[in-house]
Computed example of a mutant assay.
Amino acid sequence: MDRTFLMIKPDGVQRGLVGEIIARFEQKGLKMVAGKFETLPEDRVMEHYAEHTEKPFFAGLKAYITSGPCFLMVWEGKDIVSITRQMIGATNPAEAAPGTIRGDYAMEIGMNVIHGSDSDETAAREIGIHFAPEEITSYTRIDEAFLYE
């Protein structure tokens, strides 16, 4: 199965949306194989957002993402990156369709509730930044036979 990295950002945690967001992915048939609740340390923020460190918005992004705890997760499923990106919605919540996480819960780009990896390569890199291999579990959901052909 494919894997992706998802992170409920501080605004999603503060607004009590963790359970609702997890439920959406579980109800879709995706499987969480790792999760942890933490305030991100600066070194991991710098590594995670390495491509943005020289951009003018980075200082605000760094202050926001370290402003409180996040809920970090690894999820499994067939074509999971594209499926979760569709469920998350556009980066700009004003452009996110109703029914998506950002379309339903976010108002601004700067506080858009959730991060999701945008490719299989990015997912592998982000999972490696935030989780050690032994933190990721493997199991079979009881309903998997009814989810995939």
Score class of each variant (00 low, 15 high):
residue 135 E to C: 05
residue 122 T to R: 06
residue 108 E to I: 11
residue 12 G to A: 03
residue 76 E to H: 10
residue 58 F to T: 00
residue 36 K to F: 05
residue 92 N to I: 01
residue 61 L to T: 00
residue 42 E to P: 03
residue 141 R to L: 12
residue 16 G to K: 14
residue 40 L to Y: 02
residue 68 G to K: 07
residue 43 D to G: 04
residue 128 G to D: 11
residue 3 R to P: 09
residue 67 S to W: 07
residue 114 I to M: 14
residue 83 I to C: 05
residue 133 P to D: 15
residue 67 S to C: 11
residue 69 P to Q: 14
residue 61 L to E: 02
residue 12 G to D: 02
residue 18 V to F: 06
residue 141 R to G: 04
residue 115 H to A: 00
residue 123 A to Q: 04
residue 99 G to C: 03
residue 81 V to H: 09
residue 52 H to K: 07
residue 140 T to M: 08
residue 31 K to H: 07
residue 98 P to D: 07
residue 27 Q to S: 14
residue 9 K to F: 00
residue 127 I to L: 06
residue 120 D to S: 15
residue 146 F to Y: 11
residue 79 D to C: 08
residue 113 V to I: 15
residue 143 D to C: 08
residue 4 T to C: 11
residue 25 F to M: 15
residue 21 I to F: 04
residue 1 M to C: 11
residue 28 K to V: 09
residue 103 G to R: 06
residue 130 H to K: 03
residue 9 K to E: 08
residue 116 G to H: 07
residue 26 E to R: 08
residue 64 Y to F: 15
residue 108 E to S: 11
residue 76 E to A: 13
residue 74 V to R: 03
residue 7 M to G: 08
residue 30 L to F: 15
residue 8 I to N: 00
residue 145 A to C: 04
residue 82 S to V: 03
residue 81 V to A: 10
residue 55 K to H: 06
residue 11 D to N: 03
residue 116 G to I: 08
residue 57 F to R: 08
residue 51 E to P: 01
residue 22 I to M: 15
residue 41 P to M: 10
residue 27 Q to H: 12
residue 42 E to D: 13
residue 10 P to Y: 04
residue 112 N to C: 06
residue 141 R to K: 10
residue 129 I to L: 01
residue 120 D to H: 10
residue 91 T to R: 07
residue 128 G to E: 12
residue 6 L to R: 01
residue 148 Y to A: 06
residue 127 I to N: 04
residue 44 R to P: 00
residue 79 D to M: 13
residue 65 I to R: 05
residue 15 R to M: 01
residue 95 E to Y: 11
residue 110 G to P: 01
residue 101 I to G: 05
residue 19 G to L: 13
residue 125 R to F: 10
residue 75 W to H: 15
residue 23 A to W: 03
residue 34 A to V: 02
residue 129 I to C: 05
residue 59 A to C: 03
residue 116 G to N: 11
residue 62 K to W: 00
residue 139 Y to F: 15
residue 63 A to Q: 13
residue 112 N to G: 04
residue 130 H to L: 12
residue 78 K to C: 08
residue 110 G to L: 13
residue 2 D to W: 04
residue 62 K to R: 15
residue 3 R to C: 07
residue 140 T to Y: 07
residue 21 I to T: 09
residue 104 D to A: 10
residue 148 Y to P: 05
residue 133 P to Y: 12
residue 97 A to P: 08
residue 44 R to T: 08
residue 60 G to D: 13
residue 66 T to R: 12
residue 60 G to W: 06
residue 7 M to I: 00
residue 60 G to R: 13
residue 71 F to A: 00
residue 22 I to D: 02
residue 71 F to N: 01
residue 131 F to S: 04
residue 24 R to Y: 07
residue 81 V to S: 01
